[in-house]
Design a protein around this nucleic acid. Sequence first.
DNA 1: CACACATGGTTGTAGCTACAACCATCTCAC
DNA 2: GTGAGATGGTTGTAGCTACAACCATGTGTG
Lengths: 166, 166
Amino acid sequence: MWQNVFVSTRWLDDAEMTAWVRLAAVLELLPGVLDSQLRRDAELTHYEYYVMAMLSEAPKRTLRMTALAQRTNATLPRLSHVVKRLEDRGIVERFPCPEDARATNARLTAAGWKKIRATAPGHVETVRQHVIDVLTPEQITQLAEITGAILESVDPEGNLSAVYRR
Amino acid sequence: MWQNVFVSTRWLDDAEMTAWVRLAAVLELLPGVLDSQLRRDAELTHYEYYVMAMLSEAPKRTLRMTALAQRTNATLPRLSHVVKRLEDRGIVERFPCPEDARATNARLTAAGWKKIRATAPGHVETVRQHVIDVLTPEQITQLAEITGAILESVDPEGNLSAVYRR
DNA sequence: CACACATGGTTGTAGCTACAACCATCTCAC
DNA sequence: GTGAGATGGTTGTAGCTACAACCATGTGTG
């Protein structure tokens, strides 16, 4: 039975294998690069930065936990732990949602707002250095198309952010 | 001074931002998808699978720890921990390198070889489903070029595998 | 209006990774 | 040949994520 699966498997050809091996390497290496720059310059993980960035763009710098989890591509438990730590550091604050007693709102504090404004330039520079500036404008467009297609298969119900939907 | 940095920052335009946000989402979501399929079907993380795959392709299914770390894009401490666990499970075995008493060789056992042969078809199918088969042949080529460029900036000295060098 | 189920969120814990400290062996200049 | 530094690898530990269990509130059906 395994033999049958084995022989019927559609293995990857050379071009496919090259693309996949490189993508896997990016998956492995790029997060570490982003994390260590943010860690060094702002004592922040990339995910923490993303949480702050999403809050900073929201009305009143406030979002419900569920919405924030969607925008940051994370599960609720993970977000909950992270927000607790950010709260302990005075970067965000949590308060019950008035319209729905089950829900919790997270808001960026003044200190958090100041911190992300100070951190953003260095982070953007890192993203430019390792991703944007090494690609041509055509490749930027291609990358958006390619990642869009991958995301549709990884998150078919659109559970996550609408940011990347096309 | 920060003001100066702030105003001189080259922010991302719309096309750049779209590409980056989507890539960041892929970075966040795809590893989880790969991990959970392998975890469910073979009690393996994606990284453990990769370690086994690299060994399975090597002469005598044996590699030195340093070479294995390079091929799997990992640090030596990380690899050391992972290999110890795989050794406890009877999937790999370690023995001192005859030519260099400092070095250690890792070898895939017969059980490990059997396991990866059983696991590979399902994993390849997952990679096809979420990456390869959602792209056109042109996009596969573009993806290889794009990830190649990113890897050159992330790993400029070529410390890691030659697999992705062009 | 009561019950079942869905939704929103938190908490406990196991397991993996990063970082630093450490040890052993090799290389080479003198 | 010996001391200094480089190389190869392991181990300890702090911190983050995944998963499961849990609780409170909301919603809909009879």
